[in-house]
Each structure stands twice: as C-alpha cells, then as structure tokens.
Amino acid sequence: MNRILIVEDEQNQRELYATELEEEGYEVHQAHNGEVAVKMVTSNKYDLVILDIRMPEMDGIEALGKILSREKKLPIIIYTAYSNYKSNFMTWTANAYLTKSSDLTELKETVKKIISSKSR
C-alpha cells in the first residue's frame, strides 16, 4: 500500500483529502505544518507528499526545501490556494503544482500518475 503524507494546516481540508484518498486505497498520514512534516518524513517512509504552501510555523516553501534535502527523490505535489507561487522557482522542484479546488479529481489523478510512474 502506497503511503501519502498530507501537509495542510486546515483540519477540515486535511481530513477531506485523507478520506477521499483513503477511499482510493492509499495509506494517508497527516501533518498540520511544515515542521511536523519534516519530522515525519525523516522518521517514516512515504511515496508521496501533498504540500500546502501557506501554513503557520513553517510554510510549504521552507518545508519543501527541507524535505527534499532529506529525501531527494520523494515526489511532492504542491496543493495550494495560491496560484501565483508557480513563479517561485522553489516550487519548480516539486513534481506538480495544483491549485486547490473543491473538485478533487485533478488531485487524485495527479497522485495516481506520480505513484504509478514511481513504482514502474
């Protein structure tokens, strides 16, 4: 079973994504900010990280750098309500940059695509 880490400060959203992705057959862990996420990535093995950008304590951009410095090959999807962070070159290191939507189809498909390409 592929393990996904969702990094999101909004609890409701986090739980929604978790529920939906679990239904897709993934094992989903949750982190409520970047700092927690960096810790979890070092102690656990994940197949994919879904990362919000704007969060308290440590934001997604900082977390992105820290995660990648530990796990260079860990796929990361940036999933944010900001559309303009696409221009921040840090986000280019992520595998995908998606704008949040109530429709999770896009997210699910991207997750599926990344995980399947990784397992090949």
Binding site: N12, Q13, A81, S83, N84, S101, D103, L104
Partner: peptide, 25 residues
C-alpha cells in the same frame, strides 16, 4: 492588485474548497 488579489483569493479559496469538497462528499 496582483498581490492583494492573490492574498484574498487564498483566503477565500481555502474555505471554499473545503465547502465544495464536503458538498461533493
């Protein structure tokens, strides 16, 4: 406008997608 609107967008989009997501559910 870009700076402010992106900020506003973020603040609105977050609760919005939550609402929408749950409505979908």
């Amino acid at each position: 406008l870009g700076r402010i609107s992106s900020h506003i967008a973020h603040e609105i989009r977050n609760p919005l997608v939550t609402m929408g997501g749950y409505a979908r559910r």
